[in-house]
Design a protein around this nucleic acid. Sequence first.
DNA 1: TACTGAGTTGGAGTGCACTCCAAGCAAGCC
DNA 2: GGCTTGCTTGGAGTGCACTCCAACTCAGTA
Lengths: 150, 150
Amino acid sequence: MATAVQPAPLSLLDCSEAYQDPGPVPDRTPRHTISEVSAASGLSVHTLRWYERIGLLDPVDRSHSGQRRYNDGDLARLAFLGRLRLTGMPVADMLRYVELARAGEHTVQGRRELLVAHREEVRQRIADLHATLAVLDYKIDLYSGKKQTS
Amino acid sequence: MATAVQPAPLSLLDCSEAYQDPGPVPDRTPRHTISEVSAASGLSVHTLRWYERIGLLDPVDRSHSGQRRYNDGDLARLAFLGRLRLTGMPVADMLRYVELARAGEHTVQGRRELLVAHREEVRQRIADLHATLAVLDYKIDLYSGKKQTS
DNA sequence: TACTGAGTTGGAGTGCACTCCAAGCAAGCC
DNA sequence: GGCTTGCTTGGAGTGCACTCCAACTCAGTA
């Protein structure tokens, strides 16, 4: 099966829809096949189906023959979820976030707290990585022409 | 059972021994109990024993009653291994690194390559985390008094 | 019409990195 | 002596996040 309706360049990983001008209005036409979305998002087709099964994604639209067709809203959510996942948020927390979002406007505060907590974790991880970078630089220097220590 | 011989302030997490003045000479006296090392390194006692079992650590010295007594060399290696682990290196790769180190001086190049590869990964992760930080800032701003998008 | 390739499902399986368990031993304290 | 605490072991168990499987359907092409 070839591309579904209109390919339209997919660039999920930059997550632009989340913090730039979202454009006129997100196109809710279901048109991306699962393999397209997999390629664009970096998530495997297994993972995409699994995310839907556990409720991270609302049930995706189907073609007349029952195949999934993702719309741009799905892509936006996947891009964001992918980022959360990539930066170490457990799937259970992602699910909590999504369920809050589904519950409506009155959960905005809870969602905010969840993201703030994650931001703290992200900052901590950046600090850890930077510290390790220094150690690695030192060791690599050592190995570039000297003896080793441990 | 109290502290073993001499407590001596343990500060593993800064990994100072690896990239600062290592001091006169690392004290090879076996004196730290497993729980002390666990507290100082952030690794559980389970993990410490497991690391030893799989060969990440050479067999640790024992007290006359058979309990482990870690020396400063062990601590230094654990500090470094802990950093590698914390920054996402798989245990299998850590093991490869340790085995290279055990094999002698002629493996310096291999060790260096391993660390260089890991450094690249670390840099990539830092970039990912920074990008996500921007998205989180944006979303949190949104949640601090407006509507949401996804 | 036959074949190929991409998709579907529920449920089972995998890999990693721990994490825990039961049973036992040794040391220190009341 | 009895109790508590900390340690020992091999092996089993756990949790997470996928990842794969078998059996199937459907659409498109030769």
